[in-house]
Simulated assay, not measured.
Amino acid sequence: MKKYLQGAAVAAISVAIATPSMALEWNVSVWGKRRAFTEHIEKLAELVSEKTGGDFTMNVSYEGLSKNTENLDGIQIGAFEMAQICAGYHEDKNPTLTVLELPFLGVRNLEEEVAVSDALYAHPAVKKDLERWNAMLLMSSPMPQYNLVGTGEPRDTLEEFSGMRVRATGGMGEAFKAVGAVPTSVPSNEAYNAMESHVVDTVAFAQHAHLSFRTIDQGTWWTENLNPGTVNCPVVVNIDAYNSLTPEQKEALDSSVPEAIQYYIDNYQSEVLTQWDKILTEKNVTKVQYSDEEIAKFEAATQGVADEWIKARSAEGIPAQELYDLVKAKLKELHGM
């Protein structure tokens, strides 16, 4: 088993070169519990082990290695070899990735989320950004567009969002603020209590999170097609750990990524979305469908969030306009425009 040693003052990484007779185990840092959000990591571990006859395995640890907000730090010092991160948890650590968390980009499904993520991850500025943490982007964790579970009367026009208290973070929080709502960054595991005690009127999550954190149990309506944005949560690997792999191990890892991603998408659609539709029906939750005109009003009202992101990131020396244009161009390609 390969170990990366962490010093108190110096991030010293000791790399052990694996030979065909040595079994290699990578530690993988994730959080929460095993769920739809982590199924591609579990599948990746399964595939790599199969392809190497058990000579290369992964120990997927749920909160046993690091806090979710410190996974990049752990990757940097070699405390573990692989980790899942979310850009919005630490925007200052990975500013280039946050372009994918801007509101109303127009991503329609998980396949498109994978495609735009892959396009962005390949950009030299993004690679350089992550290299500061000795991290290499391996694959995305495609998240559906967040939507709102709300209490009280459904809000089906932009004007009705004025004064609405919403649990939303990052670019989505800024977007709701732009339309007159009051965003708050209540931790996800406190969202249910915040709804129950009327601290917030609505919560923005993907479907699996509304199920996991039980916010749907408080809700009376659901914004089926508002699609204000999502979070970007890639899986990264320690560069030194990756470079120390044998050619056979690299092939096993790299070739398993597409299948792991497809497994994630299939599982999300067959398990989570099917369960979600069933629960909405059982709980008699109203599905709010916004007209094209209302969506256009939301998009126009929140465009300033992207403009401000471009201005702020450009001031940091990041080719922000180029990254934003890359994402929009990829989406136009995917939409056949």
Rank of each mutant, 00 (worst) to 15 (best):
E113V: 08
S197R: 14
E39D: 10
A300C: 06
H208Q: 11
L245Q: 08
P319R: 00
L102W: 04
T38Y: 13
N71M: 10
F298G: 02
L100A: 03
V179C: 01
A204Q: 06
V285N: 04
R214G: 00
K128G: 05
V236E: 04
N238G: 06
E91W: 02
K250L: 05
L148N: 07
E174C: 03
Q269M: 13
W276I: 10
V203K: 09
F80K: 01
E190S: 13
S188Y: 14
I13R: 13
R155M: 12
N243H: 12
L138N: 07
G219W: 04
P95E: 11
Y264G: 02
A300W: 09
W221N: 02
H210T: 06
D254V: 15
V114I: 14
L334G: 04
Q269R: 13
V200S: 10
R165C: 06
G336K: 10
S197G: 02
Y290S: 01
A135E: 02
S21M: 08
E81R: 07
K2E: 11
E39C: 13
S66W: 04
F104H: 07
K278R: 12
V327C: 11
E333P: 01
E159I: 15
I77E: 07
D292P: 08
R313Y: 06
S314V: 09
K3E: 10
A194Q: 08
I310D: 00
K128T: 14
